[in-house]
C-alpha cells in the first residue's frame, strides 16, 4: 500500500518523518519529494551512498587500464618509433594522472546516476510537485495504514492519498 501526503512547511514534514521513524518504519520505505533539498536532522533519513567508493573504484579502474594500455602498446603492439622509447617515466605519470582523474569523474557520475535512479525509474509514478510544498510517501503493509495516517494528521498533512502498487 502506498500512502502520499502533502505538507506545506518544512517543520511539519520533519515532524511527520520523525514520527514515522518512531513508529519503526525503515528509512528506505519513506521517500520525500520537494522542489528544494530539505535539510533533515542527522540520521533521520540516512541514505547509504557509495559515490566516494565509486570514485575511488573509477580511479583504480582507469589507472590499471592506462598502465595496462601503456604496457600493451610498449611490448606487443609493434610500434614504429624509430627506436625511441615509447614511454618514459615522468610522461606516463602525467598522462596516467589525467586518466585516473577522468576515471574518478566517470565513477562519480555513474554512481550518482545509479543512486539517484536518474536513468531508469521503476515503481509508482512520483506525485506532481507543487512550488512550495513537499510530499511524503511511505510504502507499508495494509494493516499499518491507520497508524501512518494518524502520524500524518498529527504533523498537519494537507491531504493523504492512498494508492495500491501497480506492479
Amino acid at each position: 500500500m502506498l500512502l502520499t501526503a502533502e505538507f506545506l512547511t518544512a517543520d511539519s514534514t520533519v515532524q511527520a518523518v520523525s514520527a514515522l521513524r518512531a513508529e519503526g518504519f525503515s528509512a528506505n520505505d519513506i521517500e520525500l519529494f520537494s522542489y528544494r533539498p530539505l535539510e533533515l536532522p542527522e540520521g533521520m533519513l540516512e541514505r547509504r551512498s557509495h559515490i566516494s567508493l565509486a570514485a575511488v573504484l573509477g580511479a583504480l579502474v582507469s589507472g590499471t587500464l592506462t598502465t595496462a594500455f601503456i604496457f600493451f602498446t610498449q611490448h606487443n603492439y609493434p610500434l614504429v618509433t624509430g627506436g625511441m622509447p615509447l614511454v618514459s617515466g615522468w610522461a606516463t605519470g602525467v598522462v596516467s594522472f589525467e586518466l585516473i582523474m577522468a576515471g574518478a569523474v566517470a565513477g562519480v557520475v555513474l554512481a550518482f546516476l545509479r543512486e539517484g535512479r536518474l536513468l531508469r525509474r521503476d515503481g509508482a509514478p512520483p506525485p506532481a510537485l507543487k512550488d512550495d510544498s513537499a510530499f511524503l510517501r511511505i510504502e507499508c503493509p495494509q494493516e499499518s495504514v491507520p497508524r501512518v495516517v494518524r502520524c500524518f494528521e498529527v504533523a498537519g498533512a494537507q491531504d493523504i492519498v492512498e494508492e495500491t502498487e501497480t506492479e
Partner: peptide, 27 residues
C-alpha cells in the same frame, strides 16, 4: 533525465557535487 525531486536524488546530488568539486579542483 528522470529527476523527480526525491530526497534520495537530492542526497546523491549533494554527495556527487562534493566529490566532483574535489576532483575538478585537482584536475
Amino acid at each position: 533525465l528522470k529527476w523527480v525531486g526525491s530526497d534520495r536524488q537530492w542526497h546523491a546530488l549533494e554527495r556527487a557535487m562534493k566529490l566532483m568539486a574535489a576532483i575538478v579542483l585537482a584536475i
